[in-house]
């Protein structure tokens, strides 16, 4: 599942090393519109019911944080 996640993330934001980065938000690696684009993809690819309240910096700082969010929201 993590591999699929990283493949999707790399497609949305090419050139970012998602397997290694742990401060994607805090270090400003992701840009303004990336999160919404990422969430749109994750909802579809993982059938995860990610709501607008889940869109918080701590849920997107690393691939692992995003994976944990997906697992919490999978129906």
């Amino acid at each position: 599942m993590k591999e699929k996640l990283i493949r999707i993330l790399t497609e949305v934001c090419p050139g970012v090393d998602f397997a290694a980065e742990t401060a994607l938000i805090d270090d400003g690696i992701l840009e303004s519109l990336d999160i919404v684009a990422i969430v749109t993809e994750l909802r579809e690819a993982f059938d995860a019911d990610i709501g607008v309240d889940d869109l918080l910096p701590e849920n997107f700082n690393s691939a692992d944080a995003m994976l944990a969010l997906i697992e919490r929201r999978q129906g």
Binding site: I25, S32, L33, D34, I35, V36, V52, D53, L55
Partner: peptide, 9 residues
């Protein structure tokens, strides 16, 4: 701010 544009709320 950049961060506000990342998180819609």
């Amino acid at each position: 701010p950049k961060k506000a544009f990342m998180f819609p709320t």
